[in-house]
């Protein structure tokens, strides 16, 4: 009788791994959900201050970043199509485009934050203290939420970077590309969160 001495982990369940990714995405959504609750409560308590503080944010740069993120979402979706059509080079091209757009988003974010810091609009600053509670809370939430979102962009870029490596050495291939799909799902999640952050911070007044 042949005896098993090694534990066999290798059963590839494409739907199962996608389900795992979705469940993880739910936890991310709820994580930001907690912040959305905080945002809505404080907005409800300080409507005027939130209104005025929101007008201070640069709608143009916010819109540009939204467009960049939407396009990057489309390119990562296209990379999956390319993979399914067995066009490896094209697939990699779309993935690099996504990474590039993600980096541009971060650079924009950096300049946007830099301006805010120059104006003294950062947590714990004297300027904010003078402006009052509403502004303190608005900018606290602004930095915390967009900061956490930027952190997710970084994580997303790292994930896509890993998938690029696996695509290059054919560990991710047209027969099993759940990893690429899951990386894509994560990137779309980052996009969905931004879709809500954008109007909440830049537009609503």
């Amino acid at each position: 009788m042949e005896q098993h001495t090694q534990h066999v982990d290798e059963h590839y369940d494409h739907i199962g791994s996608k389900m795992g990714m979705w469940l993880f995405i739910f936890t991310e959504l709820i994580l930001f959900g907690g912040l959305f609750i905080v945002y809505s409560v404080y907005r409800f308590m300080h409507p005027t201050a939130f209104h005025l503080a929101a007008e201070e944010l640069d709608v143009a740069i916010g819109t540009i970043n939204t467009v960049i993120l939407l396009i990057s979402s489309a390119t990562i979706a296209m990379s999956i199509t390319a993979m399914q059509q067995r066009k490896k080079k094209l697939c990699l091209g779309f993935m690099f485009a996504t990474i590039f757009l993600g980096l541009v988003f971060l650079v924009n974010k950096y300049f946007e934050w830099k301006v805010k810091f120059e104006h003294g609009h950062y947590p714990g600053s004297d300027t904010l203290h003078e402006l009052g509670h509403g502004d303190t809370l608005f900018y606290g939430l602004y930095f915390f939420m967009t900061g956490l979102h930027a952190l997710h962009i970084v994580v997303g870029l790292i994930i896509i970077g890993f998938v690029v490596r696996y695509v290059i050495n054919d560990k991710v291939n047209p027969e099993r590309f759940a990893l690429l799909e899951n990386g894509g799902l994560y990137w779309h999640l980052v996009d969905v969160i931004w879709i809500f952050l954008f109007p909440l911070f830049y537009l609503i007044h």
């Binding site: 308590m45 509670h133 303190t136 809370l137 606290g140 930095f143």
Partner: peptide, 11 residues
């Protein structure tokens, strides 16, 4: 940041 600090407006 002042999320929950009444001195900074938090609840």
């Amino acid at each position: 940041i002042g999320f929950f600090d009444p001195a900074l407006g938090g609840d």
